[in-house]
Design a protein around this nucleic acid. Structure first.
Length: 116
DNA sequence: TGGATGACCTACA
DNA sequence: CTGTAGGCCATCC
């Protein structure tokens, strides 16, 4: 059962590669891992990331809302971190994905090749 | 081994 | 267009 560990590793690496001041979504991470249908599992991966040095605060849901802020221990800390990086928040408490949404190169190539 | 849960997303009515 | 239901993958008990 080391393969599943590999899945986690993918998410960890991706999250760790997220540029500063940018945010990504679970769906994109899941797709980058090869399974867009496993967006939920991605959240689980981050669940363990909460205990790691990974910038899980850069990972948000499709709406750009900090869904896992509670798992950080300090919701305001998540906002503060993103704000510190230059990320702007909406009045709804969502991140400006239009300006800070970061998409993994793999997905970018795939989508580009897929001719959306 | 099997059932239940989870920081989600997509599809259909 | 809005709302509801289902599904997918992995981990935990």
């Amino acid at each position: 059962m080391k393969k599943k560990q590999d899945f986690f590793d993918r998410v960890y690496k991706l999250v760790a590669k997220i540029p500063k001041g940018k945010v990504t979504t679970y769906g994109l991470i899941a797709e980058s891992c090869g399974i867009k249908s496993a967006a939920r599992t991605v959240g689980w991966a981050l669940n363990g990331a909460s205990s790691s040095n990974l910038p899980c605060h850069r990972v948000v849901n499709r709406f750009g809302a900090l869904t896992g802020k509670v798992h950080f221990g300090d919701p305001k800390l998540m906002e503060d971190l993103l704000r510190s990086e230059g990320v702007r928040f909406d009045e709804d408490g969502c991140v400006e994905m239009k300006k800070h949404l970061w998409i993994p190169p793999k997905v970018l190539s795939k989508k580009a090749n897929k001719k959306k």
